[in-house]
Design a protein around this nucleic acid. Structure first.
Length: 467
RNA sequence: CGGGGAGUGGCGCAGUCUGGUAGCGCACCCGGCUGGGGGCCGGGCGGUCGCAGGUUCAAAUCCUGUCUCCCCGACCA
């Protein structure tokens, strides 16, 4: 009995259903905005914690900058304004009167950071300066979708300044692999393709953009995080300079990088199945749910003991003893919410000294002795991550077709990813792909690694439909 | 902005063609039975049918106007 619509025929509907039924989020009062509910936010908090640890390990410090940006700031970098102006929300009135200069609600903060990087950086000794902020931004989207593209969203944006182009490039790559790729694969169990954006897909104002692209279960691509080399564009526009060892005044090289609550959407669409969400254990708000079949002193005691034993090893455990709610309903609800491991304790089994352990990545439910329950549950939590990653990796592998020309790419990308020699595509081919509802998600080397530059020889284009 | 569709209890819908004073499922509340996969029986709360005007003895239903929302496309983390 599938709880949700079949995802193969109606993926968007299935996606919205999971979000609603698992009580993750709902639409906000303003079109395109989102209310994140406790379960969805708890998932996000775990993602955020893993991300924040890695950001700090990479040497960046957290700060907070203002929500409102004077319009003039944004205008200082020409390409940047042009890229963002259609989607800006602008405050023109405050304190009961019209403002002299309109205020932009930040769509991203390169421009304010630029202003302050310029003030804070005097000497080469101040570099590299590596800052990060957790904040909400607003981009007036024409076509919103919960978690994937909302007009207001929550994210992390890093902004750094370096003495050399190489230093900036190396740091961009460090963030890309040690923060983004690491969180996506090791925490969220989402395998990603990594590479460079084409000139057409690049961030407005960047000289180079690195991306992590995931494949969703319907074969469409989702951009999950980007890191930008900004060259000296913003340094020039905001006068971010320093005095070098030899006394000369130099322009900085800056970077920016971001990832958002979109990752929650990526988790849903990568791992979800017809029974609902399947959460990677590292971000599951509840990692083990211990369900009491019905009330009985022995059952309750066994459940509480198991909870304590598991909690002692650092697992997030909860006991569901709401026996006024039918068992079937409770089991279904935890499945919908994606809890990785479920232990069922009931009087019949318990009389024989056993309990049941079910893993959310498969349908099997195994019977184990009460004495082994804690070990079995703990092992199950660990193996759910690997199983989800393995399943998603296989989907990505089998969903990617190697092709030699544009027509074959267009054909293959109707149901998955196409890997095409960039020489057979180029900017003109890219326009044709766009006309067919496709895009070049990234450019990679033959081995699949991130190329040194987007105009290197022997590159491959990953072509797909995208969210 | 172009193309479709919808506004009726908290949610999802029927009723509109053919006018007669609002109904179903879910949820919620009460009582009981049940209890190893969304269980059963009984009782109950809750809606001036998006808004404004018109026709009529009578409007959710017909007419005019208006507002809003959703879906597909174009913009995008």
């Amino acid at each position: 009995m599938p709880v949700l619509a079949p995802q193969t025929t109606d993926f968007p509907g299935w996606y919205q259903d999971v979000i609603a039924k698992a009580e993750l989020a709902e639409t906000g009062p303003v079109r395109g905005t989102m209310v994140i509910r406790p379960w969805g936010y708890a998932i996000w908090e775990h993602i955020q914690a893993h991300m924040d640890d890695r950001i700090k390990a990479a040497g960046a410090q957290n700060v907070y900058f203002p929500l409102l940006i004077p319009e003039g700031h944004l205008r200082r970098e020409a390409e940047h304004v042009e890229g963002f102006s259609p989607e800006l929300a602008v405050v023109t009135k405050a304190g009961g009167r019209d403002l002299q200069e309109p205020l932009i609600i930040r769509p991203t903060s390169e421009t304010v950071f630029g202003e302050y990087l310029a003030r804070w950086i005097q000497s080469y000794r101040d570099l590299p300066l590596r800052l990060n902020q957790w904040a909400n931004v607003v981009r007036w989207e024409l076509r919103p979708r919960l978690f994937l593209r909302t007009s207001e969203f929550l994210w992390q944006e890093g902004h750094t300044a370096h003495t050399t182009e190489d230093g900036a490039a190396a740091y961009t790559r460090q963030i890309h692999s040690d923060v983004y790729r690491s969180v996506l694969e090791d925490v969220l169990a989402i395998p990603v393709l990594t590479g460079l954006k084409t000139a057409a897909e690049r961030f407005a104002g960047a000289t180079s953009t690195l991306t992590c692209e995931g494949m969703m279960r319907d074969g469409k691509a989702l951009q999950l995080a980007t890191s930008h080399e900004l060259g000296q564009n913003f340094a020039r526009a905001f006068d971010i300079t320093y005095t070098d060892e030899d006394g000369s005044v130099q322009l900085c090289w800056t970077t920016s990088w971001g990832s958002s609550t979109r990752m929650v959407g990526g988790v849903i669409m990568t791992h979800g199945d017809d029974a609902g969400l399947r959460l990677p254990p590292k971000v599951a708000p509840v990692q083990v749910i211990v369900v009491i079949v019905n009330h009985d002193p022995d059952v309750t005691a066994a459940a509480e003991n198991l909870k304590l034993e598991l909690a002692r090893t650092g697992l997030r455990v909860r006991v569901d003893d709401r026996t006024d709610v039918g068992l079937g309903r409770r089991l279904t609800a935890w499945e919908l919410k994606g809890v990785p491991v479920r232990v069922e304790i009931g009087p019949r089994e318990l009389a024989q000294g056993t309990v049941s352990v079910a893993r959310r990545d498969g349908t099997d439910r195994e019977t184990v002795s009460l004495a082994d329950a804690a070990t079995a549950a703990r092992d199950a939590v660990q193996s759910v991550h690997d199983a989800l990653f393995a399943q998603a990796t296989e989907a990505l592998r089998s969903g990617t077709a190697d092709v030699e020309d544009l027509d074959a790419a267009i054909e293959a990308a109707s149901s998955g990813f196409a890997r095409l020699p960039w020489a057979a595509c180029g900017p003109e081919g890219e326009r044709r792909l766009n006309g067919a509802g496709l895009s070049v998600r990234c450019l990679t080397t033959a081995e699949g690694s991130v190329p040194a530059t987007a105009d290197a020889d022997d590159l491959y284009a990953i072509v797909a439909r995208a969210y």
